[in-house]
């Protein structure tokens, strides 16, 4: 049996509005996360909303509507781990789950395919902690075997879930995923996520030293749509650190024309990196 825990008692102070109720493609974020967990293979999804406050009832209602079990805390949980403990207590009856999927409620990118994939991978890595990773950054949900998850209760009061994961560092398996599975805390985070999710994938042709450094003649990057050449440079530098010294100096061609940083890139743009010299002669 697979259970998911969604601590959702945070106060969204930096978003300026109740972020779990922000609608993404017509569904409040919390409902979207619950649905992704269910559809991806979680048999039970336990959501812990705030104990009180103006949004508590609406968050609980949205979670229930999406099929979650809602555990309303008696007092407002001080930390995320307090909410997780509460959910674990509810799940700690027969039949206990084998796996716990743990994610905050504010991960707009979470989708059922990813959950399904993590569940599948967990069968290949019994007893291990699975962490989805995008470009070296860890995201959500993490997959904890029940035997490890229950130790949240044993953590000292002032430490969080991360400590539990760190304590089992040798049992972590990172699962590379194709989209950032990060939580969003600010309006800028959300805008950035929206632009990634609604953005475009472009191919960039590489030549000479850039091709050699990358080990291939074409690379793919995600950009907002539309983007500029400056966006492309940033994306290339972030995504392909090996190319860094080259990308910084390379000219970018858009539709077979040298393009400045302000030039616009669309989904159909033909892009190439025109690397500079690696030094040498100025003669034919």
């Amino acid at each position: 049996m697979i259970a998911a825990i969604v601590p959702a008692a945070g106060r969204s102070t930096r978003m300026g509005q109740p972020k779990l109720l922000i609608e993404i493609e017509g569904t409040p974020m919390i409902g979207r996360v619950v649905a992704a967990l269910h559809d991806g293979g979680a048999d039970r999804v336990v959501v812990v909303p705030p104990a009180d406050g103006p949004d508590a009832a609406a968050i609980a209602a949205a979670a229930l509507a999406a099929g979650a079990e809602v555990v309303v805390p008696e007092v407002q949980p001080a930390e995320m781990r307090d909410s997780v403990e509460l959910a674990l207590a509810v799940l700690d009856v027969d039949p206990r789950p084998d796996l716990i999927l743990l994610t905050p409620g504010d991960v707009p990118g979470l989708h059922a395919d990813l959950v399904d994939r993590l569940v599948g991978e967990s069968a290949a890595h019994p007893g291990r902690i699975l962490v989805p990773t995008h470009e070296g950054r860890r995201g959500h949900p993490i997959v904890l075997p029940w035997e490890i998850a229950v130790h949240v209760r044993d953590l000292p009061e002032d430490v969080g879930i991360n400590r539990l994961v760190e304590a089992h560092a040798d049992q972590i398996v990172e699962i590379p995923v194709d989209l950032e599975m990060d939580d969003v805390d600010t309006p800028a985070d959300l805008d950035r996520w929206r632009s990634l999710a609604t953005g475009m994938t472009v191919q960039v042709r590489l030549f000479a030293i850039a091709r050699e450094k990358a080990g291939r003649s074409e690379i793919e990057v995600n950009l907002p749509d539309p983007a500029t050449v400056a966006d492309l440079r940033r994306a290339l530098a972030d995504r392909f650190p090996d190319l860094d010294s080259v990308t910084l100096g390379a000219m970018i061609a858009v539709d077979e024309e040298y393009a400045g940083d302000a030039a616009i890139i669309g989904p159909a743009s033909r892009l190439a990196m025109i690397p500079p010299v690696s030094g040498g002669s100025d003669e034919a």
Partner: peptide, 26 residues
């Protein structure tokens, strides 16, 4: 030599290689 994207790769006697695009040389 300045504007046409064609790169030259030298292989030197000592086995080293080097990409040259003369037009873009600093």
């Amino acid at each position: 030599k300045e504007v046409v994207p064609i790169w030259k790769q030298e292989t030197w006697e000592d086995g080293g290689t080097e990409w040259i695009h003369p037009g873009l040389a600093p």
